[in-house]
Amino acid sequence: MTDTDVQLQPKKKGLTRRQKRSLSRGVQYAVFAAAVIAFAVTADWGRLQNQFAQADIARQMFPDVITLALKNTVLYTLSGFVVGLVLGMVIALMRLSSVGPYRWVASVYIEIFRGLPALLIFIFVGVAVPLAFPGTEIPGGTYGKVAIALGLVSAAYMAETIRAGIQAVPKGQLEAARSLGFSPARAMVSIIIPQAFRIILPPLTNELVLLFKDSSLVLFLGVTLEERELSKYGRDLASTTANSTPILVAGLCYLLVTIPLSLVVRRMESKSQEAIR
């Protein structure tokens, strides 16, 4: 008893807990301010502005940067996402199958496509597939190729996400469905998967953001002028104008989509926190 009493007394020597806390916070603010000032002083703002923020160059990018480049980026991303979602769903269900070979194939697929850089898969789809199956054309031209390449990459990630979502649905849900006479397949479709998707909506949206950025890899497939997306468009214009402003504008266009998406994810996450029974 006396021991604790002693500890409860303010210490005579040194700083109190409160003083320590305010000192620590003061140091953190000071470091931050010093870093900002150092950056502002050392950076050559004139050259930066000259190279990255030429208003007239930026102006001449419109409206093409939106109507063509951003539109294509969105198209590539969405088509890749749809392919990835369907394929990922199939692989997730294979992963959970009671048939051994399905599980093995799914595991091998996931390990391979998660382990490879997306760039290699783009080159593979662009070069190896036409070589391996001569005469066959991937439907949809570049759009089809991008959809498949992005789909192959994202399916591996989405399969794992979907599998985790399915397994996160309480076991009692399947039991209740089965006891009502649902077949295993029907229980999966009507009861389990809808709940799994509510759980995995935030990570799936994150995957969409990642795909949005990965769509820039399309430039390795070789695209026509009309098929250019943000990165390619920005780079091309940067080399013709010998100025990097187009890169900055393209970057801002990405953020125009990714930041709202991230905010949506954050809102969904806090909402699903509330909705947990």
Binding site: P170, G172, Q173, E175, A176, A177, I191, Q195, R277
Partner: peptide
């Protein structure tokens, strides 16, 4: 069931 298991 003990845990009701309604579909949420």
């Amino acid at each position: 069931f003990q845990q009701f298991n309604l579909f949420p």
